[in-house]
Amino acid sequence: MEYKLSPMGDQSILIELGNTIDLATHDIVQHVVTCLDSMDHAWIIEYIPAFTSITVIYDPVQVLEIEANPFKSPYHIVANIIEEQIQQIAVLETKKQRTIEIPVLYGGEYGPDISIVAEHNHLTIEEVISFHTAGEYTVYMIGFAPGFPYIGGLPKRIATPRKTTPRSVTPARSVGIAGEQTGVYSIESPGGWQVIGRTPLELFQPNDPEPTLLQTGDKIKFKSVTKEVYDHLEAKLC
């Protein structure tokens, strides 16, 4: 496994694990996340996995207090410890991946842009739905907004460019397409994604012990549901 460590400011270290957005790099990121999960150092504040890297945020003062070592800077102490851990990753074991099914009511008032996606790709609306539900998706990263997943795996047949003028408000739980990405808005926010449907599931609930529905590494299946099922699920979840 190849990696490169570099500082990002005086309290973070960035572990670079690749330079392309793909499943193979994503799997390596997940291996290292599993490895970091097993580290129990009080000076690790948190870490942020991304497409090709993980950034570990640490407390340099605590590093010096706990790992007393007069010859090295906090960064070098942290880099050494992380390096030793990464090198011990012999068998590439990843956290057990979860598969999460996301019910979606496609089209209509909740998916106003589905006809744009259909026209752009010379498909019928039904074909757009069947391509979207057939995709095998992976959450590469959570970012941009609380619980907002960057999802890879959209079938190229339904890839569609962003809207030229972004909407000032896209409702929470909207399912959209932007280029070759698909995603679900976790909170209401402005955005230029083509909105093709909506899920009754909440992606972000700040008062829950696990505040986001999705985590980096999750596998996703979208499932088309009727208005009745959607309304039933939404009522049950509220």
């Binding site: 504040i45 948190e46 870490y47 942020i48 996995p49 945020i57 959570i142 970012g143 941009f144 907004a145 609380p146 619980g147 907002f148 976790s186 972000f204 700040p206 505040p211 986001t212 985590q215 980096t216």
Partner: peptide, 10 residues
Amino acid sequence: RTGYRHHGVV
């Protein structure tokens, strides 16, 4: 708010 940045929380 620390410990939730991997959830996208600032």
